[in-house]
């Protein structure tokens, strides 16, 4: 499974490098990923393979931050919104197991933080 996360992270690295390049190739300080609790990747595995994924790329000194998005469901019977991890998928109000997913499957690159050289460039 680690291999799976690694190849996905290589994709992330490629994408972030492309975005950085399109923005004048600044130094990328941080990558922020958002991963839903019900996404098909495991945040800890993502962290484990991150160093390998950035090895010998322009992101070698870039830090990784992961924001976890809770998996929330809305009960189809009584409309109660519940956190699927705590409720185990069962509505705490009416015990129904039917729900629609509101969030939790996300797996996206939220943003990157880059060094902005605007002022120092003016001084040169």
């Amino acid at each position: 499974m680690i291999m799976h996360e690694l190849s996905i992270m290589l994709e992330v690295v490629r994408r972030v490098e492309a975005v950085a390049k399109a923005n004048g190739s600044p130094k990328v300080k941080t990558i922020v990923l958002q991963i839903g609790e019900a996404a098909s990747v495991i945040p800890r595995f993502i962290e484990d393979c991150y160093d390998a994924a950035i090895h010998q790329t322009t992101l070698e000194e870039t830090k990784l931050e992961i924001e976890i998005i809770p998996a929330m469901g809305r009960c189809l019977d009584c409309r109660q919104v519940h956190h699927l991890r705590d409720s185990q998928g069962i509505c705490p109000t009416c015990r129904s197991k039917q729900f629609e997913m509101l969030s939790g499957r996300e797996f996206q690159i939220k943003q990157i933080a880059v060094e902005d050289h605007y002022e120092s460039d003016q001084n040169h």
Binding site: E11, N23, P26, K29, F107, K110, Q111, D116, Y118, E119
Partner: peptide, 18 residues
């Protein structure tokens, strides 16, 4: 002085591939 600037991407990891 270098400052930090945020670039929003907000894009699913598989979007480019898709």
């Amino acid at each position: 002085m270098s400052q930090i600037k945020i670039i929003e991407i907000k894009e699913g990891i598989f979007e480019q591939n898709n």
